[in-house]
Write a protein that binds this DNA or RNA. Structure first.
Lengths: 342, 342
DNA sequence: CTTATATCTGCGAACGTTCACAATCCGCGC
DNA sequence: GCGCGGATTGTGAACGTTCGCAGATATAAG
């Protein structure tokens, strides 16, 4: 209030105070090697005394970079931003945070058709890179991708089923192994995988592979309870579990490819008087909040959205020529649904 | 690939093609009134032919604006970005989207102590405005706020308990009314409010007020089942519900201030053999995914994160001098927990 | 003591826009 | 017929930084 708002200090002000030229200030603060250590200290001191910060707008203009990361979240046609998967939201949030930590701003968009988005940003050139969250089977989208990529624009994908591109995924093989090892340690003898393979959801397939591997390592035959398409994932899980019971399969535990299916399965088991965890162990993947409130509470493998977001940002911003393909560690969260009472 | 990447066209290129001077291009495209309609058309045509877009960096530098919106999500000390309330995430996402739609980028941060953030952005001046998501009782934070505000920097708050500032909240009074009206229509006779009043959570208090008003309008006496502090909201709900049963209060329905409490209450009722919805109706607020999977599925009042995000951005960016205080509509979602079978 | 070399710093320009101001054109009234 | 105001457009500068290049200083070698 009193005194009014002072003008923001510029590099000229710092230069004057430090007794050097203005470009020297720039060099000192941007970490250029061609600067004497003594000068740098002097400049830094002056900058701090004045409360100086580099004006990113000017720096970016001159440098030719945008300092901006575009993020597109793929959602179904007509979906509002509110109705997407909670994990995608958490991922979005952590991408934004990771970008901010590296001094990048984010331009976020929810899109049913990624290609529109790609075209737009490609032309407008408003972002240095693009992070895509979600899975699409949309072929034109992949074309736009390659176009972006060949222009030197960086793109990273969460869970991409397309092998030409940079991606980041959960360590789904480890998830499968963790699930099997936990179930066996808890006293179950024949865990079965619940989920569909060979769908665009590569991550599900990978979880199965981890599961199968661990089963064989324990001298057991993998077994699969395939799901069929339904309106919701819960419904898929419900149906698959019901079928399992009807056919009287010889299994005593289920590893569902995602929590939503696991929750559906829990309902089906309850309806058929199969008591979880006594008669049947159930474990999922995703660590949905819902799993904390189901009855019984759901054991699950938790992905790490914070790590995943950081990895995505890193994949986009670090311009190593090598393709970035990172696995983000997962962790086991034990709740009642696999606690076979002694 | 072939031909390499062409240089991005500038306003000089457009000017040359349209046969006007460069600043005229700027005027034509920025909607300045001091321009002949014929000229504007000529310029726009040339711009489209060349695929020209204004370089935001240069425009912002010259204009003195940042084109950036800072968003801070307040979380508890040590919390990672991943562990915050799902609604806050949804809100964050929709704020980012709403900002992007208005051509603003977002700088997102998760902070336990908002004052650090305020100070940082205040000095660095990297954002035109600030959106704060979350509730804090931290007094120093409010000081920083006022400072920002008096410097002409715009700030908007989700659910602020501080009356000097712009805020956006759910229409909590309507929520209370909706809950009561629904419960009465469903055949319950004496619904009770479950939650604590006079806490920093103004929104809870407002929901109670709406509830009480609707009760009186129906000729009923409001009733309150106060919660006490516990590690989690579920636990608060569980305890409050247990006490309600022990004391044998004459009630047949509960409106919980949030879904987490409602879910806790559901557990307590189940443990005490009070059958929901037959003996007791339960309704919450938040529309957590968890409510879809609880047993029975939870009737709830759903806030609208998309609308809320848009309103927050509007409050920050529209520089009317009048304080922006907006109520975002809520909607009733009926599930089994209030479906008293006939 | 001089020259070559490496290390550091200053100078000027450039990035692409918007803004203040001056210049031009037009029609109209005296 | 000349000047004058309003509507448009052009001119020049400025926003605050980074970059290329030349100049300066110090250190080492001949």
């Amino acid at each position: 209030m009193s005194g009014g708002s002072r003008r923001r200090p510029t590099s000229f002000d710092v230069a004057e105070r430090a007794g050097v030229s203005q470009p020297t200030v720039s060099r000192a603060l941007s970490g250029s090697p061609a600067i004497a250590e003594a000068t740098r200290r002097k400049v830094i001191e002056a900058a701090e005394a004045l409360g100086y910060f580099v004006d990113e707008r000017a720096a970016r203009l001159r440098r030719g970079s945008t300092g901006t990361l575009a993020v597109v979240v793929i959602c179904r046609e007509g979906d509002s931003a509110a109705s997407i998967n909670p994990f995608a939201y958490a991922l979005l949030g952590s991408v934004c945070v990771a970008a901010s930590e590296r001094g990048f701003e984010t331009l976020v968009s929810f899109q049913a058709s990624p290609e529109a988005f790609f075209g737009h940003y490609q032309e407008q050139g408003r972002a240095d890179g693009l992070v895509v969250i979600g899975t699409t089977t949309n072929a034109p989208a992949w074309e736009h991708f390659r176009a972006l990529d060949s222009e030197g624009r960086r793109v990273a994908y969460w869970g991409s089923p397309h092998d030409e591109l940079d991606w980041v995924r959960s360590d789904n093989h480890a998830a499968g192994r963790l699930a099997v090892e936990h179930l066996l340690a808890a006293g179950y003898r024949r865990p079965c995988f619940l989920g569909a393979l060979n769908t665009p959801q590569v991550q599900f397939t990978e979880r199965y592979e981890g599961y199968a591997e661990a089963m064989r390592a324990a001298g057991l035959e993998p077994c699969l309870a395939p799901t069929v398409n339904a309106a919701t994932r819960e419904e898929e899980g419900r149906r698959a579990a019901r079928r399992l019971i009807e056919r009287g399969e010889d299994i005593d535990a289920v590893f569902a490819a995602c929590d939503a299916m696991a929750l559906g399965a829990l309902e089906a088991f309850a309806a058929a008087d199969v008591t979880v965890p006594r008669d049947m162990g159930v474990i999922g993947f995703d660590d949905l909040v819902a799993g904390r409130f189901s009855r019984p509470p759901l054991t699950t493998i938790a992905p790490d959205p914070a790590e995943a977001g950081a990895a995505l940002v890193e994949a986009v911003l670090d311009d190593s020529d090598a393709m970035a393909r990172r696995r983000v560690p997962v962790s086991l969260i034990v709740r009642d649904s696999t606690l076979r009472a002694g």
